[in-house]
């Protein structure tokens, strides 16, 4: 059982992902940033945001394959350009998966 605490979203670590395709209610869009239980996405044209759950699909690259995750997202707030939704992490190692696709993590430089 994974928990989802919307009020804590901004306290969670946020990731800037690379190579993830996503859809909201079947419409392709882009992730702006994501945390383990919240995602900020660009608003697809003509998608009205209402107080209801939205169907979100993430296609994540993993070891040369694509792994698909479907979650239900509840809008938290939106602007003209983006929408923030909270969701329940779809698997136990979700945050590790996000970390592995984070652009800053990919390019982290350490002492030599």
């Amino acid at each position: 059982m994974t928990d989802c605490r919307p009020a804590e979203r901004r306290k969670e670590r946020r990731y800037i992902l690379c190579g993830v395709d996503c859809w909201i209610d079947g419409r392709p869009t882009h992730i702006v940033d994501i945390s383990r239980s919240g995602v900020r996405m660009l608003l697809p044209p003509a998608l009205a945001i209402e107080d209801r759950p939205y169907d979100i699909v993430f296609d994540m690259p993993e070891g040369g394959q694509v792994r698909s995750f479907r979650v239900s997202g509840q809008p938290l707030r939106h602007t003209e350009h983006y929408v923030v939704l909270t969701y329940a992490p779809p698997c136990a190692d979700w945050e590790a998966l996000l970390l592995s696709l984070d652009t800053f993590e990919m390019t982290r430089l350490t002492a030599i």
Partner: peptide
């Protein structure tokens, strides 16, 4: 494609922040 995807991933949040 791989490199452009990487760069766009970084540019996108910046554009959203600048729009705000």
């Amino acid at each position: 494609v791989k490199l452009i995807t990487f760069l766009k991933s970084r540019i996108r949040p910046l554009v959203v922040a600048a729009y705000d």
